[in-house]
């Protein structure tokens, strides 16, 4: 497992070198390998598919411009992209003065029953969760997306967010508690939804 990861990292390092020398194919491969992760990261932070596409485009344009200065220090390339994405999202909210208020969400109750269409339940739950995540603080959003949506390890999440693992553990705890609290206050029954998805 570790060997495969190392191999992947070496391949990525070569692609980065080639991209820095102006190889469009190499940059395109880096792009394709990471575009969905960056899109999801942004999507969960802005909760708008079209806007997320636009901002994802901006992230890669910035990455392209910054390739010459990028220094490969053995960290995943996506960590740099996440940082650019984070800066872009912050920038966006600052420029537009639009930001989801850090308040409770109001949702329609999701009926969960034995005859409930599971895919519909999944979609509705996903929508509610996205809204709730978008109302967390910046760092709480980041840790939720990186840990549970992207499935990154604690260490990788720490690298991406520029914190140590213990800080991520504490942040993750606060984020989950905040998210659970918001969902609960909105009448969102997580346990029932989980059962509905499992049945």
């Amino acid at each position: 497992m570790a060997g495969k990861k190392q191999e992947t990292r070496v391949d990525e390092g070569r692609l980065i070198e080639r991209a820095q020398q102006g190889d469009a194919d190499a940059f395109a491969r880096l792009y394709r390998a990471n575009v969905q992760a960056i899109y999801r990261y942004i999507y969960h932070r802005v909760n708008d598919a079209h806007l997320a596409e636009d901002l994802t485009g901006d992230v890669f344009v910035r990455a392209l411009k910054g390739m010459a200065a990028y220094q490969n220090r053995g960290k995943p390339f996506v960590a740099w992209l996440y940082r650019i994405a984070h800066a872009r999202v912050v920038d966006y909210y600052r420029q537009t003065s639009r930001r989801p208020v850090e308040s409770d969400i109001e949702i329609e109750p999701i009926p969960v029953g034995a005859d409930m269409d599971r895919s519909l339940l999944r979609r509705q739950a996903a929508r509610v969760l996205r809204e709730a995540i978008a109302r967390l603080t910046d760092e709480q959003q980041q840790v939720i997306v990186l840990r549970f949506i992207e499935g990154h390890s604690l260490e990788t999440t720490a690298q991406i967010m520029g914190k140590n693992a213990n800080a991520i553990k504490a942040l993750q705890h606060r984020a989950l508690r905040a998210l659970a609290g918001r969902l609960s206050r909105a009448g969102f029954d997580v346990e029932a939804i989980l059962s509905g998805l499992s049945s």
């Binding site: 792009y31 394709r32 575009v35 969905q36 899109y39 999801r40 999507y43 969960h44 598919a49 997320a52 596409e53 994802t56 485009g57 890669f60 999944r122 979609r123 739950a125 996903a126 969760l129 995540i133 939720i144 840990r147 549970f148 949506i149 499935g151 705890h173 989950l176 508690r177 998210l179 659970a180 969902l183 997580v190 346990e191 939804i193 989980l194 998805l197």
Partner: peptide
């Protein structure tokens, strides 16, 4: 906390459309 973490992890991940990926 475990319930919310698990639910978040289980939900379908949104994806950028193939057309948008290609255009970019």
């Amino acid at each position: 906390a475990l319930q919310v973490g698990l639910l978040t992890a289980r939900l379908k991940k949104p994806e950028m459309s193939a057309e948008a990926v290609s255009t970019l």
